[in-house]
Every structure is written in structure tokens, then in C-alpha cells.
Computed example of a mutant assay.
Amino acid sequence: MRETRMTDADTIVLPRLGSLEAIEDPWGEGHDEISSEPPSDTRWLRLAAWLVPALLTGAFGVARAAPPGLHLDKLAAWGGDASSWRDTWSMLRWEDAAPYHLLGRAWVELVGTSELALRGPCVLAMATAAALVGAMAARMFAPGTGVLAGVIFALLPTSVRYAQEAQPYALTLLAAVLATWLLQSAVDRPRPWRLVLYAAAVGLLGLCNVIALLLLVGHGWTVFAFRREVALRWLAAAVVGGLPAAGLLWHATQQGVRLAQASSPSLTGLAATPGQLFGVAALGAVLLALALFSLPLRHPAAVFTAWAVAPPLVLLLVAQATPIWQPELLHFTLPAWATLGAAGLANGGRRVRCWR
């Protein structure tokens, strides 16, 4: 009987082993914060996570969307979008941003060629991207973290800049956020149609900016690390999605086109990267410091860490062989840095509450 009682006692204390999960997750990256919030608060926070960033980005984009005069890059965009369909189509022979100008040409047919109208697609793209950033952070971390991530992203000087520029940066950034959103759905609940949507988002990303396909390195790392059973299906979808950009890249190289005016990385250039990427060097340093609080590589943090870190590292390695380094080419990592910064703020707040 004594031996039986000892076995029962062991069985009784077994549920206490669940506390080890809290030790593995000292930063609270799980869903504890979601479950601890009242349902009504959670619902409103989830709504605010996508609505507030979208409204902020849209307001900042429209606030100065029609100042007098156009810069040279906007004049080039205006010339491409306002030209005839035949001239716009001929840009495919030499212009790496031709898919964006094809979209811009269709937009001009609908709304006209004013400067406000010309910047409209970029404002809409950035507002949609900000909404997705907040919603994705809310889904993968917590609703409060989602609000922080979306607001940080909306307030970045470069986010405001890309919302106001008639250039493919905003659409590229939106495609990167959309591809990452669809990736999580595809690997969590793998269905053929989900993989098809992911491949389509990757295709849009590559057509907007072929360098942005470096995002697939980060996607691949998270898939092989956490969802290895769907790795082959992800790889097939990624390859199919990258084919249009590969064809355009091959066609451009045959015409002797340089995809970007870039250079080899130097110490001075690398030191200037945070300021060029985030708009203000000090702001970039703060985000990098906050991101350190999100580095424990559980799945939510790992997705954004790979998104933020892998593309710059790969581009830096490639730049050792060919002059292709340009910080602006990494603008599609901004949502990841904003989300990591928000997660760092949330984690720091939880730790302060625990110490009190």
C-alpha cells in the first residue's frame, strides 16, 4: 500500500512539471498575456492593432502628399505612369521597376495624373502594410504588442517617406508583410490554396524588387527550424513564386541593366546604415537595442528575427563579391524591426512589473 501511495503521490505532483514551460519562456512570449486580458479589452486591442497604424500611416502619407513640385525620382515615375501603354510596356526592356509602372499606368487611367493621385497607391500600400504589421504582431505575440508594433512602424521616418514617394518601395514592403502573413497561415494549416497565395505574394515581392527575395532566406530558416514537415511544400511554393522575378532578372542582365546604383560595403557605409534605413540613426540604435529583448528564439520572435537579420547578412556576403550594397534595398525589413522593438518594450514592461 505504501508503494502504491508513493506512486499516486508522484502522479499528483506531475502537473507541476508544467511550470518548467514558464522557465523556458522567461520573456512571456507565449499567449499568457492574451489569456490574462479581459475578453472585451482583447477584442478592442485587436481592432486597434490594425486600425490605429493604418489611420496613422494614411494620415502622415496624405498630410504632405501634394506639396508644390516633384523631385527627380517622382518626375521619372510621373513620366512612366503618364505615358502611353506602348511606351510603358517597352520599359520592360530596360527598367527594373517596370511592373510597378504598369500598375501605376492602370492607376492613372482611373484617377488622373495629379501629384496627389500619383502618390495614392503608395499611401494605400503603406497603410495596408501598417495594418498587417499590427495584426500579425497581435496574432503572434499579444494584442498590446500588436498596437505597439503598428504604431512604431507608422511613426518611422522612412515609413512616412515611402508613403509619400511615387516609387515601388511601398508596394515592395507591403508584399513582404503579406508574404510573411501568408507563410504563417500556410505552415500552420498547410493547404494547397494557402501555398498558392503565398507563392503569389512572393511573386509580387520579386517583381517589385528582386533584392527583396532575400526575405525567403529568413522564411526558409523559420520553416526548417519549426515546421520541417512542410519544408518541401514551402520550398516548391517559394521557387514558383520567384520564377517571374528570375525571368525579369535574366532579361535585364541580357540588356546590360544594373538593378541598382550600389557600391561595395565599407566601414563608413555600414556605420551609416541605421540612419539610412530608419531615417534617424539614434532611432535605429534604439530599435536595435529593444530588439535584443526579443532574441530568445521561440517561434514568434524567431520569425521576425530571421526577417530582420537574415537578408542584411546575405546581402552583405553577396556584396563582398559584387558591388550591390545599398541600405535602402533592405527597407522591407522595417516591419520586422518595428515588431521586435514592440516585443522588447512589452517584455521590458512585464519584467518591471515582476520586479515590483
Rank of each mutant, 00 (worst) to 15 (best):
A142V: 01
G150A: 05
A135W: 10
L205G: 09
A142N: 11
T158H: 12
W221H: 02
L195E: 07
A154G: 03
R139W: 09
L205T: 06
R161K: 11
L182H: 01
Q167P: 00
L148P: 13
I211C: 09
V202Y: 01
L216P: 11
A149P: 06
P190L: 01
L213E: 04
V177T: 13
P192M: 07
A212M: 13
T172K: 12
V151Y: 14
G134N: 14
L171Y: 01
R161E: 02
T145V: 15
L148D: 01
P168W: 06
R161C: 01
H219I: 06
A149F: 02
L148Y: 12
P192C: 07
L156Q: 04
A186M: 08
V217C: 09
Y169W: 06
A201H: 00
M136F: 14
Y169G: 00
F141G: 12
M140L: 12
F153C: 11
A166M: 02
L207A: 05
D188I: 10
L195W: 07
G218S: 00
W221D: 00
L171T: 05
S159R: 04
L197W: 04
I211T: 12
L216N: 13
P190V: 03
V177H: 03
S159G: 10
Q167V: 08
A149G: 12
V187P: 09
I211S: 15
G203K: 11
V223M: 09
E165H: 05
W193I: 01
R191M: 12
A170S: 07
T180H: 10
P192S: 07
L182F: 00
L155H: 11
A176S: 10
G146T: 15
L174E: 04
L214R: 05
Q167K: 05
A138T: 03
V151A: 13
Q184E: 02
A186E: 03
L174A: 06
L195V: 11
L178I: 03
V223K: 00
H219S: 14
G146P: 04
T180R: 01
R194L: 09
P143V: 14
V202I: 12
A170K: 09
V160C: 08
T172E: 10
R194C: 07
V210I: 15
T172H: 02
A138Y: 01
L171A: 11
S159N: 05
L195M: 13
V217T: 10
W181P: 07
C208I: 00
M140K: 04
G150F: 05
A138N: 07
A212Y: 04
